[in-house]
Amino acid sequence: MQSSFIRKYLANKISCMYLLSGVFVVCTALLGLFISSVQYPIAMIIDVLSTKLFGLSFSESEGGKTAETIIWEIRYPRVLLAFLVGAALSLAGAAFQGLLRNPLADPYTIGVSSGASLGAVMVLYFQLTIPFLGSYTLPVIAIIGGFITMFIVFGVTHLSTRQLSIETIILAGIIVSSFISAIISLIISLSEREDVRQILYWLMGNVGMRGWSHVKLMIPFLLIGAIVLLSRSRELNAFALGEESAEHLGVDIQRSKLIILVGASLLTGAAVSVSGSIGFVGLVIPHFIRLLCGPNHRHVLPLSMLVGGGYLILADLVARTIIAPSELPIGVITSLIGAPVFALLLIRERIGRGSA
């Protein structure tokens, strides 16, 4: 009787979490569309979106082509891209934390973000344009840089231990990230003033001045990465018990590690390639979700995607309105919010353990 009540309570709690997360995403998306430094009536915004999405027009738009361009070509893809990037970083962070059994792990732990950043900085510094890629040169090179870094980390790990041990992966990631950061600093020091401003602004993270091309680039990588990681929730739950226990439960340790790392690295590389380095999203959001719904990755992964996407929309809204008409890099906002929040979460968890 008691176990049945507990199961029912937990099921209702999880259902409420999904409902609240969905409402949070919808509300932040609406705020992102309705609020900006350039104000338009809500009815006009709804009319433009309904016309473009469903071919239904409810009224004559007074703003003309200018309003339509700002709403459909600038504001809407910006909100959508913020959601996609936030969802990707949060999902990757949840996977890294589950795999490495470390609440301090995030998409940047194994150096994928640093590698993607280096690829993007090289494109900006050398003004590279691959003929058949055109404007896609920067995102594609950034993703390739992320994967190359991941393979270097795997190589260092394999040469040192012959296995993909968790501790060695973290140490190798820190070593490779430090080396790449030094290369990026060297490039910045050799750059002219105009290039330095552009590179630094990109490194601080931003989803502004992006368009549908970036959204279209991000969607397939998010879908592939999400399918890979969401299908591995059982393995991530098993890893929480330790590698030996996971192996006894029938998990192929090395293969599962590789698949999860590739999926999370794909998401991170794609996110960094379109938005730059945005910190603390993949660190704070999964940790926050675990505190609310428990450690079951069957729910932690999708809830992290929803809440992370909504959170980044909200952070972008703050970044573009707090000092309007100027904008702040979104990475600055996520760091200012994420660092103290994560510190409070850690203190709360330590206090909880101490009193238990």
Score class of each variant (00 low, 15 high):
159 L>I: 10
80 L>S: 02
195 D>S: 15
164 L>Y: 14
196 V>L: 13
73 E>P: 06
13 K>W: 14
344 L>H: 00
208 G>I: 08
355 S>N: 05
221 F>A: 10
264 A>K: 00
298 R>K: 14
269 G>L: 02
341 V>C: 09
118 L>V: 12
169 I>S: 10
163 Q>D: 08
334 T>G: 08
266 L>F: 08
229 L>M: 01
184 I>H: 13
129 T>P: 09
14 I>K: 04
275 S>V: 05
190 L>K: 13
350 R>Y: 14
61 S>R: 00
303 L>Y: 07
129 T>K: 13
306 L>W: 00
171 L>A: 07
148 I>D: 03
108 Y>I: 11
283 L>W: 00
249 L>R: 04
115 G>H: 14
28 T>I: 00
144 I>V: 15
46 I>E: 12
21 S>N: 11
274 V>E: 06
197 R>Q: 15
53 L>F: 05
81 L>V: 11
52 K>E: 09
198 Q>I: 12
68 E>L: 09
327 E>S: 04
68 E>N: 13
312 L>S: 02
44 M>K: 06
218 M>K: 08
36 S>I: 00
164 L>H: 02
135 S>I: 09
174 I>E: 03
127 Q>R: 14
251 V>W: 08
12 N>S: 15
320 R>Q: 02
215 V>C: 08
116 A>S: 14
191 S>R: 10
152 I>W: 11
338 G>W: 02
30 L>G: 09
19 L>W: 08
294 G>E: 05
67 A>K: 05
119 G>T: 11
339 A>G: 02
36 S>K: 11
302 P>C: 05
21 S>C: 12
232 R>E: 11
326 S>H: 07
108 Y>R: 03
162 R>N: 03
275 S>H: 03
315 A>E: 09
151 F>Q: 10
54 F>Y: 06
290 R>Y: 05
3 S>Y: 15
288 F>D: 08
20 L>V: 12
297 H>N: 06
133 L>N: 06
136 Y>W: 09
56 L>D: 01
